[in-house]
Write a protein that binds this DNA or RNA. Structure first.
Length: 328
DNA sequence: TACAATGATTAGCT
DNA sequence: AGCTAATCATTGTA
């Protein structure tokens, strides 16, 4: 590029124009700038930073600040208010910067064009040359824009991982979910391993995911086994509950296929769950000893249910536990 | 604020 | 793949 004869003021801008744009991280390695720009625009759109049809076109910060973040599936209110507030800040900064860049680009283009026109009195300057200069200026500014977009994307991603990370933002399950899970657990105490279908049903009823159901049962089994005493009261409550409302729970589990004998009532290691109700439960509560004839199963549970791994043979004498999912 | 409860993650096992 | 056991990290509570 031949340096045109410009004023000292323009020397400064000439320096700007000749700055390499290669320093923009990732752009060169990730394909043509247009593709990269499109990806960034899509991402900003998905994150709710810009709005459809307005990507990079100077959407007003004020208007944008009230927009609902589009890319946040969990954006359901108070628990993410912090996220939303910070996203809104990012959005404002993004749009005001973008606006500044665009204005600077317009002003600089006008300025350079005027200077070239002035120069044309001294030496011949073709319209093509002016066009080329304008193109170069726009190219520089769009690469700056790209950098801005990239930084914005990074900021949003960091914010998301910090504030919306499921593990860090663990929430206790709703009462409904806990009840549903506990009802199943205590009514299937002899074999508290819900089948895939039962897990799905529990998940649906509790408004949680299947993997959350699996986690819950994993935790529950281990914690129950470790400290059965602590759970006695809870067991009594749910036993009484399911005794009254047994069809509800029975409907979930395959073990409940024995209508007259809830799985854990006579067979399980924890006779608290007898459909006979609170009396047996309280008796056991007092002694913490199994009802006659169930000692073997109690020790089995104390050593670990070893649920799905349990062979059908070990369930002999426990007809209610011989279920489709137990025999898997 | 300390501590218990609890949901999620991980390593190792079958 | 699904389980246990240990552990982490957050939430709830006295």
């Amino acid at each position: 590029m031949t340096k045109p004869m410009l004023s000292p003021f323009c020397d400064y801008f000439w320096f700007f124009l000749t700055l390499p744009v290669l320093s923009i991280r990732g752009i060169q390695e990730e394909g043509p700038p247009d593709d990269q720009l499109m990806r960034l625009d899509n991402m900003l759109l998905a994150e709710g930073v810009c709005r459809p049809g307005k990507q990079g076109r100077g959407a007003a910060a004020a208007a944008a600040s009230t927009a609902t973040p589009g890319g946040c599936p969990n954006d359901n209110g108070l628990e993410h208010s912090d996220y939303r507030a910070k996203l809104s800040q990012i959005r404002q900064i993004y749009h005001s910067e973008l606006e500044k860049y665009e204005q600077a680009c317009r002003e600089f283009t006008t300025h350079v064009t005027n200077l070239l026109r002035e120069q044309s009195r001294i030496r011949p300057i073709s319209p093509k040359e002016i066009e080329r200069m304008v193109g170069v200026i726009h190219g520089k500014f769009s690469s700056i824009q790209m950098q801005l977009k990239q930084s914005t994307c990074e900021a949003v991603m960091t914010l998301r991982s910090r504030l919306l990370d499921a593990r860090r933002k663990r929430q206790n399950f709703s009462k409904q979910a806990t009840e549903v899970l506990n009802e199943y657990f205590y009514s299937h105490l002899s074999n508290p391993y819900p089948s895939e279908e039962a897990k799905e049903e529990l998940a649906r009823k509790g408004g949680i995911t299947v993997s959350q159901v699996s986690n819950w049962f994993g935790n529950k089994r281990i914690r129950y086994k470790k400290n059965m005493g602590k759970f006695q009261e809870e067991a009594t409550i749910y036993t009484a509950k399911t005794a009254v409302d047994s069809p509800k729970v029975r409907g979930l589990g395959s073990q409940a296929s024995c209508p007259s004998m809830p799985s854990s009532s006579a067979s399980g290691p924890f006779p608290l769950t007898s459909s006979g109700g609170a009396l047996t439960a309280l008796q056991t509560l007092a002694s913490l000893r199994p009802a006659p004839g169930v000692g073997g199963l109690l020790s089995q549970a104390r050593g670990g249910w070893r649920g799905k791994r349990r062979s059908t043979a070990s369930l002999v004498g426990d007809p209610s536990s011989v279920t489709p999912d137990a025999s898997n």
